[in-house]
Amino acid sequence: MIGPAHYLGVSALLFGLGLYGVLTRRNAVAILMGIELMLNAANINFVAFTKFVDPTFVRGHVAALIIITLAACEAVVGLALVINAYRHLETVNVDQVNLMKG
């Protein structure tokens, strides 16, 4: 039977992938994509918990929905920042943005 462990396992791996992307990629947008993956992994967890642990008030779904909403907002703002940064610094490679070094 497909139990919670399966879903959680998938989400763990997805989370790992997303984190790897965040840590490894040079392009800012690529990093954002990695973040999205991590959020999705979290969402899988929440929804899996609703089904397998506590379906009362479908709390997990509520959380997942809020997360989706917030992810959207955050992607919007983040991408706006990327555009702005691109205009000023001529680059979207994060390793070239080290004005705070020191």
């Binding site: 965040v22 840590l23 994060v94 080290n98 070094k101 020191g102």
Partner: peptide, 11 residues
């Protein structure tokens, strides 16, 4: 340690 690079910090 203060590389100024966010991704280092996240790591």
């Amino acid at each position: 340690l203060q590389t100024g690079r966010a991704y280092n910090y996240i790591l």
